[in-house]
Design a protein around this nucleic acid. Structure first.
Lengths: 187, 187
DNA sequence: GTAGTTTTTTAACATTTGTAAAAATAAGTT
DNA sequence: AACTTATTTTTACAAATGTTAAAAAACTAC
């Protein structure tokens, strides 16, 4: 998905404001398996994913725990850096070759202080992010690992081609053995 | 906590903008056990909790599952109504006598379209909400029920006086029996 | 195609958690 | 105080999940 379209899908923007944001966005191309947001660092950019798949993960006792997968059209926010300007604990890397746009957080903050439409766009961005994370929390509170697995498959059928099951298990919050059992259930 | 202070704690506001928001806020007093945000309804207000304790919960197969507890100084957002103007699935009620302020979502949206400072205030509100929910999701992905219980006790030591353990168990995502076992662990 | 590596599944067993019911405790009422 | 009701803990057993290790399958590279 094109950046322009991705920005407008958050909320409508007058042409001039849209241009202001496009002006502070730079396209980058990354190969597979590149870490572009790293833990314990104050990240200077948010990203728009145009093409490819990324994953957001953390380390828990030296093991990777996957928090989310990202698909084209999504904006990737290193939350703590974006909101408080502090180091993040998440790591984001590419699962495939990717085309992204990086947008300077600092310059975006300046636009927030100048333009009403962009400030409201930023509000919408945060609101949609809230809904997304809440949805994910609800999945954990209300659904079984099996349901979460099937929901994920439906949401992202091509995921299995790009990520090994051991990682998907951490996303679902179960061991790999349990995921194997889930997969063996029906078929 | 006073409404004025609560609003400013989200992000700074010029006096005139602060007044604009105060103007659309109405104080209400509610007795214990009153539902003031109900499921499947499009709520017209967000709330600021000045005094008392509330809880946010849902129904899962005819059983209450608690999503969050709210303490003075917090803003309570019926997410779907606030963000999309659609019905919410959460229910919010008072666990004690409460003093709240209700703020019209519609009027607030109008202020967002008029004032840059208020639009940025609304952005900050959403951003902080994102962090709060993410924190909660992380608790579920990274911590055991026992750790979550002790964290909750630390965060809200007076909670046990106001809510029965069966409900706290649903908040933690475990059965009441498991919670009893957790409580029996150390002591 | 074969040898070597990685990933996934399976098996066996230990641990945790859930369910249902009973016992113990606490709270409320007359 | 005695009775009733609500809440919490405990018990016994069943079901689900984790751990470790081994087997099977899939993937790489030569």
């Amino acid at each position: 998905m094109e950046l322009k379209q991705g920005l407008l899908q958050i909320s409508p923007l007058p042409e001039s404001d849209l241009k202001s944001i496009l002006k502070i966005a730079d396209q980058i191309q990354l190969d597979k398996d590149i870490i572009f947001i790293d833990e314990n660092k104050t990240n200077k950019y948010i990203y728009f994913l145009q093409k490819g798949i990324c994953r957001i993960y953390y380390y828990k006792e030296h093991k990777e725990v996957i928090l989310d997968f990202c698909f084209p059209g999504q904006i990737i926010l290193p939350l703590n850096s974006y909101i408080h300007g502090t180091p993040t604990y998440e790591i984001v890397d590419t699962l495939t070759d990717c085309i992204l746009y990086k947008i300077s957080i600092q310059k975006l903050q300046e636009l927030y202080k100048e333009s009403l439409a962009i400030a409201n766009w930023g509000r919408k961005l945060a609101e949609l992010e809230t809904l997304k994370i809440e949805e994910r929390l609800m999945q954990h509170l209300f659904k079984t690992a099996s349901e979460r697995y099937h929901d994920l498959l439906q949401k992202a059928p091509l995921l299995l081609q790009h990520i090994k099951l051991g990682y998907i298990a951490t996303y679902l919050g179960v061991s790999q053995v349990t995921l194997s059992r889930i997969r063996a259930e029906v078929k």
